[in-house]
Each structure stands twice: as structure tokens, then as C-alpha cells.
């Protein structure tokens, strides 16, 4: 049980990921698929942030050692944590995963935009955003001769 409690964020990641994939695969609607994809991608964001989080850690903005702010931040740390790792002063969360996931979010947004744009064009070309109907229309297309240039 304690395992689940201490890892609840990872469990949330797994649930989000599976939910995203489920929506992605179970839905024939292209828009819903994009929603599933977005949820799936977002779960990675949570995953990376979880990796970076240090208990009692603060944002990676340098604090003058010995200042009152630093003392206050240090006082918030769990004594057990301090004892275990022997930290002294301010603890920062790892900023790198944040940066990484910022990039990944940008990539995800771009993908989402392209995907939705394609969905719009699909609707214009096929008159539907349902994968099944598009499949049927595509198969008909396969038996037609190609267009002449």
C-alpha cells in the first residue's frame, strides 16, 4: 500500500497513458483520436515532472546562501530527508526535465495542430471524419484509374 501511495504520481501517469491510448484506439472519429493522442502525450509531461521533483525542493532560481529566504526554504525540508541525504541549505528541483518537457509540449502542440489540420482536410475531401467511412471510400478509390495530369 505504501508503495502505491509513494508512487501515486507514476500511477497517475500510467492511468493517463492508458486512457489516452484507449481513446486513441477505441474511437473511429479522427477528432477523438487527436484528443486521445493529446492525453497520451500529456502523460509524458507528468512523468518527466515527477522525475524532477525533489521533496522540499524549490524552483531552480539561485538563492543567496545564508539569506533569510534560504533559511526559510531550508527549514521547510523534511528532517528525515536531510538526515538521509545529508543536504545542507537549499534544495533545488532538477530543472532539466522541465526544460525537456517544455520542448516536448511544443512538439506535441505542433503535432496536434498538423493533425487537426489534416482532419479538417479529410472532412473536406471525404465528407466525414469517421475512419470506417473513409476506409470504405478509400477502397472504392483503389479500383478507379488514376487522374490524368
Amino acid at each position: 500500500m505504501s508503495f502505491f501511495l509513494s508512487h501515486f504520481n507514476y500511477i497517475a501517469v500510467a492511468i493517463l497513458m492508458m486512457a489516452g491510448l484507449f481513446v486513441l484506439f477505441s474511437s473511429g472519429n479522427l477528432i477523438k483520436r487527436m484528443i486521445g493522442l493529446a492525453i497520451f502525450q500529456t502523460s509524458t509531461g507528468l512523468f518527466y515532472i515527477s522525475l524532477a521533483k525533489v521533496f522540499g525542493g524549490t524552483a531552480a532560481i539561485a538563492v543567496e546562501p545564508g539569506s533569510s529566504e534560504a533559511r526559510e526554504l531550508a527549514s521547510r525540508l523534511d528532517p528525515a530527508y536531510v538526515a538521509q541525504y545529508g543536504v545542507d541549505g537549499v534544495v533545488y528541483s532538477n530543472p532539466l526535465p522541465h526544460v525537456l518537457i517544455l520542448t516536448a509540449i511544443v512538439v506535441g502542440v505542433a503535432t496536434l495542430a498538423v493533425g487537426l489540420a489534416i482532419a479538417v482536410r479529410v472532412r473536406e475531401a471525404f465528407g466525414s471524419v469517421e475512419a470506417d467511412e473513409i476506409d470504405v471510400l478509400s477502397r472504392v478509390e483503389a479500383t478507379q484509374p488514376g487522374p490524368q495530369a
Binding site: L21, L24, S27, G28, A131
Partner: peptide
């Protein structure tokens, strides 16, 4: 397998809309 079986499963799991 999860990725592979995704598409056919999608057809099975779809609800009437």
C-alpha cells in the same frame, strides 16, 4: 501487441454514437 492490436480493437470497442 498493444500497439498492434489497437486498430482492430478500436472497431470492437466503439459504441453507437
Amino acid at each position: 501487441i498493444a500497439v498492434l492490436s489497437g486498430w482492430p480493437f478500436g472497431k470492437l470497442m466503439r459504441r453507437p454514437e
